[in-house]
Amino acid sequence: MYGKSLLLSVVLLPGIALAGHAEDDWPEPVKEYYTGQVLFDRLELTRTSDEENLAVWDMMAWYGGNYHRVVFKSEGQNIQDDGAPTDLESAELLYSYLVSPFWSFQAGVGTRGELSSDSSMENYAVVSMMGLAPYWFEMDNSLMINEEGDIQFVSETEYEWQLTQTSYLQPRVELTANLTDSDEYQRQSGLSNIRVGLRYRHEISREFAPYVGVYWSSALGNTADHIKSIGQDTTETGFVLGARIWF
């Protein structure tokens, strides 16, 4: 979750055309058909304030009709040249149902963890509401419950400010809250993390748009207290260079 105005219009807006269908026995003006799309909203290299280089991805793929779709989402990162495995932040397979012209309800299963042979992945169930809030704020709100009953809430909000026909300024906010403690995954209850970013994107074509940006991230509450207790920084800033790609 999403800088996904174009994708959201394709995912959500077809329901508007169907909303005007007056009588049940009238023929549909356009037959429902199945199609799909793959979007890499973030495919980037990051330089952090800790002088680490990260390769980051944030993608979504879907296939289906106007109301019912199968959706796959994935986010993750890899710290370059440190020998550590890739960190899979999420990989989710979801059923998506259009509940209104601008919102879809999604439910399914996911997994996350380090992609190494000796790591134990965290499996969870997830429910989400994805769509366009008033004033065209793009939102993806997810509630996750793992096999131990630990509950986490993640909210992602983006807004696209169109500067020219082909360039955009995009602020982005991600907020994470743990509704329960988790000793196994070292998560403390309460607001956990906030990340604020800003990207400038220029479209070479509709399908390929490179961007540059910055971000600031901070641990919050009990999570920040725990990080301080082990002598680590609670904040991070970074510079990003990447591209938004869809097909």
Rank of each mutant, 00 (worst) to 15 (best):
residue 3 G to D: 04
residue 6 L to T: 13
residue 7 L to Y: 14
residue 8 L to F: 13
residue 9 S to I: 06
residue 9 S to Q: 07
residue 12 L to Y: 02
residue 13 L to D: 08
residue 14 P to L: 01
residue 15 G to P: 01
residue 15 G to H: 01
residue 17 A to E: 06
residue 19 A to H: 03
residue 20 G to F: 01
residue 20 G to I: 01
residue 20 G to P: 09
residue 21 H to S: 09
residue 23 E to D: 13
residue 26 W to Q: 14
residue 28 E to N: 12
residue 29 P to L: 10
residue 30 V to M: 10
residue 37 Q to N: 10
residue 40 F to T: 03
residue 47 R to G: 12
residue 52 E to R: 15
residue 54 L to F: 09
residue 56 V to A: 08
residue 58 D to Y: 07
residue 59 M to P: 13
residue 61 A to H: 08
residue 64 G to S: 04
residue 64 G to R: 00
residue 65 G to C: 05
residue 66 N to L: 02
residue 77 Q to C: 00
residue 77 Q to G: 07
residue 78 N to V: 00
residue 80 Q to W: 09
residue 81 D to I: 00
residue 83 G to Q: 03
residue 83 G to V: 04
residue 83 G to M: 04
residue 84 A to R: 11
residue 87 D to K: 15
residue 88 L to I: 15
residue 91 A to W: 04
residue 92 E to G: 08
residue 93 L to Y: 09
residue 94 L to S: 11
residue 94 L to Y: 02
residue 99 V to F: 02
residue 100 S to W: 05
residue 100 S to N: 08
residue 102 F to Y: 10
residue 102 F to V: 12
residue 102 F to I: 12
residue 103 W to D: 14
residue 104 S to Y: 04
residue 104 S to T: 11
residue 107 A to W: 03
residue 108 G to V: 02
residue 110 G to Q: 01
residue 110 G to N: 02
residue 111 T to E: 05
residue 112 R to G: 01
residue 113 G to H: 12
residue 113 G to C: 07
residue 113 G to I: 12
residue 115 L to T: 03
residue 116 S to M: 02
residue 116 S to A: 08
residue 117 S to I: 00
residue 117 S to V: 04
residue 118 D to P: 07
residue 123 N to F: 11
residue 123 N to H: 12
residue 124 Y to G: 09
residue 124 Y to D: 03
residue 124 Y to Q: 09
residue 124 Y to F: 15
residue 125 A to Q: 08
residue 126 V to R: 10
residue 127 V to W: 12
residue 137 F to S: 14
residue 137 F to R: 12
residue 141 N to G: 13
residue 141 N to T: 14
residue 143 L to R: 09
residue 143 L to P: 01
residue 144 M to F: 00
residue 145 I to C: 12
residue 148 E to G: 06
residue 149 G to S: 09
residue 149 G to D: 07
residue 150 D to H: 15
residue 154 V to D: 14
residue 156 E to V: 15
residue 156 E to T: 15
residue 160 E to N: 10
residue 161 W to K: 12
residue 164 T to S: 06
residue 166 T to W: 11
residue 172 R to W: 01
residue 172 R to Q: 11
residue 173 V to Y: 06
residue 179 L to P: 14
residue 181 D to F: 00
residue 182 S to G: 04
residue 185 Y to I: 00
residue 187 R to Y: 00
residue 191 L to F: 08
residue 191 L to T: 13
residue 192 S to F: 03
residue 193 N to M: 12
residue 193 N to I: 00
residue 194 I to W: 01
residue 195 R to P: 00
residue 196 V to F: 00
residue 197 G to K: 03
residue 199 R to N: 10
residue 199 R to I: 02
residue 199 R to T: 07
residue 203 E to I: 06
residue 205 S to D: 04
residue 205 S to P: 01
residue 205 S to L: 10
residue 206 R to I: 11
residue 207 E to A: 14
residue 208 F to W: 13
residue 210 P to Q: 02
residue 216 W to P: 00
residue 219 A to Y: 11
residue 220 L to I: 05
residue 221 G to M: 06
residue 221 G to H: 05
residue 225 D to A: 15
residue 226 H to M: 14
residue 226 H to N: 12
residue 226 H to G: 08
residue 226 H to P: 07
residue 227 I to Q: 04
residue 229 S to D: 05
residue 230 I to F: 14
residue 230 I to K: 10
residue 231 G to P: 05
residue 231 G to T: 03
residue 231 G to V: 05
residue 231 G to I: 05
residue 233 D to A: 13
residue 236 E to S: 05
residue 236 E to V: 01
residue 240 V to T: 11
residue 242 G to I: 02
residue 243 A to E: 04
residue 243 A to N: 03
residue 246 W to S: 01
